[in-house]
């Protein structure tokens, strides 16, 4: 008899504050497993955001630093430049990264900072009670778009992965989803690859992970996965948008 799945050492042995069925828990696990498997837990420094994952520093089994709302890429830049031998990652929601923190992530990518970002897109501000985010889909109901987001009034949902992929300093950009076991396994591969890019010194890497917020979407957890699959994936297509290591290989 062989153990084929057990709790990763990359997470502290504590229960999280996340709502039942919230996929932040899955994405924490994938991030922690990648840190453990790459052997960097003892030299990793994670930067936590503001949002539901503000308490991520209680869960990851490595050094953690809290950042002001949206500023995690700037804080990570400072840490990595002062301590280049550390492995530095941020974990950020869509309200954090794609709204108040858009400037920080765009400039960190342009500078080609050698940091890795796990970007959790659940199309809403979870922590503050389900307000519309820049990533909220057209027609999606939130507490601040009770009739559904109207692009003529509120603009169009922002596609971060596609946007960052056009930036010359970005080395690795991929979008994944955690709506099914197969997609969770793919998400793990992408996060691990993004982390390897930093370890190889190749520069800025980001994985956008499509996630659920059953509580604020008002949908029970298994059906929230279905809602993600049917509504988010058509607008936020999955796949790799940039991999400089492959581009270099074809240039040669």
């Amino acid at each position: 008899m062989a153990v084929v799945f057990e709790r990763t050492k990359g997470l502290r042995p504590v229960s999280t504050h996340y709502c039942p069925g919230c996929t932040h828990g899955i994405i924490h696990r994938l991030t922690a497993e990648a840190l453990e498997e790459l052997g960097v837990l003892d030299r990793a420094i994670g930067v936590a955001p503001v949002g539901c994952s503000v308490l991520a520093y209680n869960y990851f089994n490595c050094d953690m630093q809290e950042a002001a709302h949206g500023r995690a890429p700037a804080v990570a830049t400072g840490i990595k430049r002062v301590l280049p031998d550390k492995f530095v990652f941020t974990y950020q929601g869509d309200g954090d990264l794609a709204s108040i923190g858009t400037a920080e992530v765009v400039h960190a990518a342009h500078r080609g900072e050698n940091i890795s970002i796990v970007f959790v897109n659940n199309a809403i501000y979870g922590m503050t009670g389900g307000q519309m985010a820049p990533t909220t889909l057209a027609g999606q109901r939130t507490t601040t778009s009770p009739l559904g987001r109207d692009p003529l009034h509120a603009g169009y949902p922002i596609r971060i992965a596609e946007m960052l992929a056009m930036i010359p300093g970005a080395a690795f950009i991929e979008r994944v989803s955690v709506d099914s076991p197969a997609n969770v396994r793919k998400a793990k591969k992408a996060i691990k690859r993004a982390f390897e890019i930093q370890l190889e010194g190749k520069g800025f890497s980001l994985v956008e992970v499509l996630s659920t917020c059953p509580t604020n979407w008002g949908i029970e957890p298994p059906l929230a996965l279905k809602w993600l699959r049917e509504n988010m994936i058509p607008y936020y297509p999955l796949g790799n948008f940039r991999d400089k290591t492959k581009e270099e290989a074809t240039d040669e």
Binding site: V3, F5, V184
Partner: peptide
């Protein structure tokens, strides 16, 4: 275990 957000499940084969 892949889908559990709370690391509740251990799997053996």
């Amino acid at each position: 275990a892949m889908m559990c957000p709370d690391q509740v499940i251990t799997v053996e084969r």
